[in-house]
Design a protein around this nucleic acid. Structure first.
Length: 571
RNA sequence: UGGGGUGUAGCCAAGCGGUAAGGCACCGGUUUUUGGAGCCGGUAUUCGGAGGUUCGAAUCCUCCCACCCCAGCCA
């Protein structure tokens, strides 16, 4: 009994090290028992599934502990940022179902304050204007194994620094002429502490502050202060910032400000794709994909167009957990998450992707019947619909074999199968192209007593095929997607090769002559369906044409059996 | 040969001195008008390795090994 209860509890509340920290803080009354997180993207690209993990984490933690989560654009570098990205990021977060309320902030909102803090550091002799060139700064910094050397400008007077910094701001200098640096320790084993640059001159217009500024704060200086200003309690970021934490803490201590806690977790890696803005940008720029929202892209926009649901992405991010270990999550888990979600929600329809004509010889020529079909066997409340049935149908090419392999229980000469929702049919004759030998059409007979898919004599058939009535079906285009890369971890390559070498050049197959049941003619863009026995598909918005994108295939046991038969033969 | 991290099944991941959760994948079986879904069952004598402490170690100690991150005026 007791064991059962504890299992239930674990299931209901999976733990991770961040929750442990928060719960400990809460129990010690730290931060007045507040939990306040933030999601701080730089608007320099589209969000991907790795960001979704961070979004779910930050907003999820806030809601679980009755706290708040801010959205903050970390726009401290005008050379890389664009308004287009801001809009896409907001859209993606909303689509995921999160709400930042009235807490939308920008780092650039704090430029005045940040400038004040910098002056304060100068006054307390903790910052100085350095006039070394970029190359010289690098040289003075030393290496991983050798300590750095003090800049000759390190001992400038407070007065001189104040004056120079003011003139930097006034635009009196060219880019690179001077920087403001924190005065810490050039011999620190942590490179980040060797007098890091905290302000640099950039003569470029900023998307929000225009030409008001020509000096911009660096991440390390700005981020901790932004967090502090917003009274963030837990500042969650990825592992590569672990080395920056001492600096994060240093600024807050020097300025004696509210001190959020930085916590680092491992970023998401997903098999058979890449998750870095730089690499995704390359795919877009060089035309490997059609854009940031190409359904093959691991971007949130891509998954949306692919037919993924926000719920499935939440579920995924819950299941992968949060830890500090570098990991490569199997994309099969993500696929499982959408299947599970869509299985419960998607309406079943029949669509023949590669049509093969089938004529029922003993069915009256002009007769049309309306067959009732269940919309979703997982959810009877979704009701039923009528589908036309007639003498000439289309079935799937792969549902017929003239010479069936072992265990094949679809249609072949002499074999009886069921047409889903309709009748039993038996294959009587195969018409082939005389020259190519290609199967052109099938002639079958049906059992009028089997309407609805069962017979009075109770005889069983193994196979059930989907079909559409030729005269009533609607033509559609279907995009079948496969993984974008052929290598599980495309980034794992030696120095002289590139991740692009592992691109799967057959990652999309477009079928232009698919036949779908008539009810789909007016399907709304974005709506999702299960194509019976195929997978989940969603309507892509495109002018005039009916286009479906395959979200994910159904599990295919037969494909596995067939493969194992082939493998056995081969060996 | 500097510093910071991380090693639990094929892939994730819990575990915090009391005798290895859970999910995905995989393999059986059952059921089925989707070769889908469901249901039932199986899969780590052992936690990177070697020592040590302890009645008892994945958990504590010591040494070793492997992998990741850091030398932007990017974030």
């Amino acid at each position: 009994m007791e064991k059962k209860d504890s299992i239930k509890l674990n299931k209901a509340k999976p733990q991770n090290f961040i929750k442990n920290i928060i719960e400990k803080d809460l129990s010690m009354n730290k931060n007045d028992e507040r939990v306040h997180t933030r999601f701080p993207p730089e608007p320099n690209g589209y969000l991907h599934i790795g960001h979704a993990k961070s979004i779910c984490l930050n907003f999820g933690l806030a809601s679980e502990y009755k706290g708040l989560c801010n959205l903050r654009f970390d726009d401290t570098n005008p050379t890389k940022e664009e308004v287009e990205y801001i809009e896409s990021i907001k859209l993606d977060i909303r689509w995921l179902g999160f709400n930042w309320g009235d807490r939308l902030f920008y780092a650039s909102d704090y430029f005045d304050k940040l400038y004040e803090y910098a002056n304060q550091l100068i006054k307390s002799k903790k910052a100085y204007v350095c006039s070394l060139s970029t190359g010289e700064i690098k040289e003075y910094r030393g290496t991983l194994t050798q300590p750095g050397r003090n800049s000759p400008y390190r001992s400038r007077s407070v007065k001189e620094n104040l004056g120079l910094f003011k003139r930097m701001r006034a635009g009196e200098f060219k880019e690179g002429e001077h920087v403001l640096r924190a005065k810490i320790d050039m011999e620190s084993p942590n490179l980040n502490m060797r007098d890091p640059v905290i302000y640099r001159i950039i003569h470029e217009s900023h998307h929000r502050t225009g030409n008001k500024w020509c000096i911009y704060p660096m991440y390390d200086f700005a981020h901790c202060l932004e967090d502090s200003i917003e009274r963030i309690t837990h500042s969650i970021c990825t592992l590569e910032f672990e080395d920056h934490r001492p600096l994060y803490d240093w600024f807050l201590e020097q300025l004696n400000l509210f001190h959020p806690q930085q916590i680092e977790f491992a970023r998401l890696n997903l098999s058979y794709t890449v998750l870095s803005k730089r690499k995704l940008l390359e795919l877009v720029k060089y035309g490997y994909v059609t854009g940031w929202d190409d359904p093959r892209m691991p971007t949130i926009a891509g998954f949306r167009r692919r037919g993924y649901t926000p719920e499935s992405i939440h579920d995924f991010s819950e299941r992968i957990g949060v830890a500090k270990r570098d990991s490569l999550v199997d994309v099969a888990l993500l696929e499982h998450c959408v299947r599970e979600d869509l299985n419960k929600r998607a309406m079943r329809v029949m669509a023949v992707l590669r049509p093969l004509r089938l004529i029922i010889d003993n069915y009256p020529e002009h007769k049309v019947e309306e067959i009732e079909a269940v919309n979703n066997p997982e959810d009877i409340s979704m009701g039923t619909r009528k589908i036309p049935f007639s003498r000439v149908l289309y079935i799937e090419q792969e549902d017929f074999r003239e010479n069936p392999p072992k265990k094949y229980f679809r249609l072949f000469p002499g074999q009886e199968v069921r047409l889903k929702h309709a009748y039993y049919i038996k294959c009587e004759k195969v018409i082939k192209d005389e020259k190519t030998g290609e199967v052109k059409e099938l002639h079958c007979t049906y059992d009028p007593e089997s309407r609805g898919g069962g017979t009075a004599d109770g005889r069983k058939v193994r196979g059930t095929l989907h079909w559409v009535s030729a005269a009533h079906s609607v033509k559609a285009e279907v995009n079948l997607y496969d993984r974008l890369f052929i290598k599980e971890n495309p980034v794992d390559c030696d120095k002289n090769s590139d991740f692009k070498e592992y691109i799967n050049h057959n990652s999309v197959e477009t079928l232009k002559s698919c036949m779908v049941e008539p009810g789909l003619a007016n399907a709304v863009p974005g709506s999702r369906f299960q194509f019976l026995r195929h997978g989940y598909f969603c309507v892509d918005s495109s002018k005039g044409k009916l286009v479906f994108n395959r979200t994910v295939q159904l599990r295919d046991t037969w494909a596995k059996i067939e493969k194992s038969i082939k493998d056995r033969k081969g060996s």
